[in-house]
Design a binder for these strands. Structure first.
Length: 506
RNA sequence: GGCCUGUUCGUCUAAGUGGCGAGGACGCAAGAUUUUCAUUCUUGAAACAUGGGUUCAAAUCCCGUACAGGCUACCA
């Protein structure tokens, strides 16, 4: 029987969730759903000095907004908890000690100052950053160099120590990456990573393999930045005796900003979001804008994220979540890093807005209008307005500019476009329009248009000369849907009132 | 410096195991439609990092070089 697929996303709650993290979530989610497996969210909060209040909550909010909710997590329950590593603290020491007992790890008593001194002392032009490796460990203060008695004494005296993995002097470690294929490492070049810190917390290296094992993870997807520490993890799986249970790895390519690795600075600098949702940093009060607040639809967000490094081999670009679940495959993920293109991201959003029914857009649009203090929005009116203007909205926030005039009489007019052509004959024309429209019983766009043109002809005015003026009267500027469609939605009283008002101003 | 990973139009990418005049999309440019703006439609410019091999044939396989990115913490 095949093992049930279980994947996990394991962020550390230290700040905003950026594009790369969200894409890792997405790929995990798609893979899990495609294989009828479980998607687990595990909080990697082993570094207590980096704790940020609200960061965990924020992660959940982002996943919920994007529609990528986990099956198991600190707040979704599950049978493999707890799902916060800080709450699993007691679990890890046992395994670290086991590794020491089996000769795969050792105690190290070097203080941070001593480590710093070592790095200074052994630094050369050829080797700017010396590692605590199979050679240097012989010159340091650890259970390999100290006598057994001394080690016992140190421990009983509660001298702080860490547990480090003992990398083999010369061994070839290989594994098969789902995206990159066979990858090899020479252990003589890898350092003795700390597994258990002096405060008793595990480092990522220990925690990730212990938890992946205990949580029965079958496939481990993470960013490319983890590739170089993969040999440590592979060896740990072996040393702990779990080699047969080791998940399949896939190291996802990085998402790059305009110049190198995507950073939140890029957002501020280039005017696009990098986080899924607004992130308020409690430490400095700074707010970083998110895709949600910028006006992105979750469907579009997921869609462009999925295509950033993956495609199904066809020329299709617009995918629903269901289609993505069906078509996704890790093997088709491109191995090179991808530079994020905000213009294309906006195009995806535009496509999604155009495709969606105004019904489905309504809640989000209503929120945006309410935020701009447009109260009392008639539901039916909103429906009509949305379907009329959505083609010209790239971001949800565009709905404001594109539809304010339905809810508010313009108080500013594009006068420079009106006045050069303005005159008595035009005034006369519009008073006639008012008279005609007042008597109008069928208030539909087509009727309004024919009447308008007839009156223009009777006055020997080309419709083109007054059409844009009419638009400015109703809207304030030269934009928006067809004028008669607007007038039809505005209704008789409102339309006539706006013409009258404009007549007093022009 | 060392190790690891990458490298097709400006950007995202396609081209199952070598046979293309290198395809699509975003963006850009031009035109048509829309008596506004946007949509829509048509057209166009635009790429195999580089040097060697292997082969009748290489974007595709091999080696070197360059460039880019990641890692090199008691951070993840």
């Amino acid at each position: 029987m095949e093992k049930k697929v279980r994947v996990r996303f394991a962020p550390s709650p230290t700040g905003g969730l950026h594009l790369g993290g969200m894409r890792t979530v997405l790929y995990n989610y798609l893979f899990a759903k495609q294989n009828k497996g479980d998607f687990i969210l595990r909080i990697e909060d082993t570094d207590q000095s980096r704790f940020v209040t609200g960061a965990e909550r924020y992660i959940f909010d982002c996943l919920k907004w994007a529609g990528l909710e986990p099956d198991e997590s600190p707040i979704h329950r599950g049978n493999y908890g707890p799902y916060r590593q800080s709450e699993r603290k007691e679990i890890y020491r046992k395994y670290a000690e086991q590794l020491v007992a089996d000769g795969f790890a050792y105690y190290a008593f070097d203080t941070p100052e001593e480590l710093e001194k070592m790095r200074q002392d052994f630094k050369t032009g050829k080797n700017p950053s010396p590692q605590y490796d199979h050679e240097l460990r012989n010159k340091m203060k650890n259970s390999l160099t100290l006598g057994e008695d001394e080690v016992r004494r140190f421990i009983s005296e509660e001298i702080p120590y860490v547990i480090r993995i003992k990398m083999p002097e010369k061994e070839l470690v290989s594994f098969n990456d789902m995206i990159r294929g066979e990858i090899h490492f020479d252990t003589s070049l890898v350092d003795d990573k700390v597994l258990l810190k002096a405060d008793g917390m595990p480092t990522y290296h220990l925690a990730v393999v212990v938890d992946d094992y205990l949580m029965k993870i079958t496939h481990a997807f993470r960013g490319e930045e983890w590739l170089s520490s993969a040999p440590v993890h592979i060896l740990l799986w072996k040393y702990l005796g779990w080699k047969k249970e080791m998940p399949q790895w896939a190291h996802l390519p990085l998402i790059l900003g305009p110049n190198g690795k995507l950073s939140k600075r890029d957002g501020a600098q280039f005017g696009f979001p990098v986080f899924a949702m607004n992130w308020n940093d409690p430490k400095n009060g700074e707010m970083t804008e998110g895709f949600k607040e910028k006006g992105f639809l979750p469907e579009a967000f997921i869609n462009f994220l999925a295509l950033l490094g993956w495609n199904d081999g066809t020329e299709q670009e617009i995918f629903t979540k269901e289609e993505l679940i069906q078509r996704f495959s890790m093997e088709r993920v491109h191995s090179g890093g991808a530079k994020f293109d905000y213009e294309k991201a906006k195009w995806f959003n535009h496509e999604w807005i155009k495709r969606k029914e105004s019904q489905d857009l309504k809640p989000a649009v209503r929120n945006i209008l309410v935020e701009k203090s447009i109260a009392e929005i008639d539901d039916q009116l909103l429906d009509k307005v949305i379907s009329l203007v959505k083609d010209r909205c790239t971001l949800l926030t565009d709905f404001y500019d594109q539809s304010v005039f339905f809810f508010r009489t313009p108080d500013q007019y594009d006068l420079t476009s009106v006045q050069p052509k303005w005159g008595e004959s035009k005034k006369l024309f519009f008073s006639e329009i008012i008279r005609n429209y007042e008597l109008n019983t069928d208030w539909s766009a087509t009727v309004l248009e024919t009447n308008f043109k007839e009156i223009a002809a009777a006055n020997k005015i080309k419709p083109g000369e007054v059409l844009s003026t009419f638009r400015i009267m109703l809207v304030g500027g030269k934009f928006g849907p067809g004028v008669f469609d607007i007038a039809a939605i505005l209704g008789k009283d409102n339309t006539i009132q706006r013409i009258k008002k404009a007549l007093t101003i022009f």
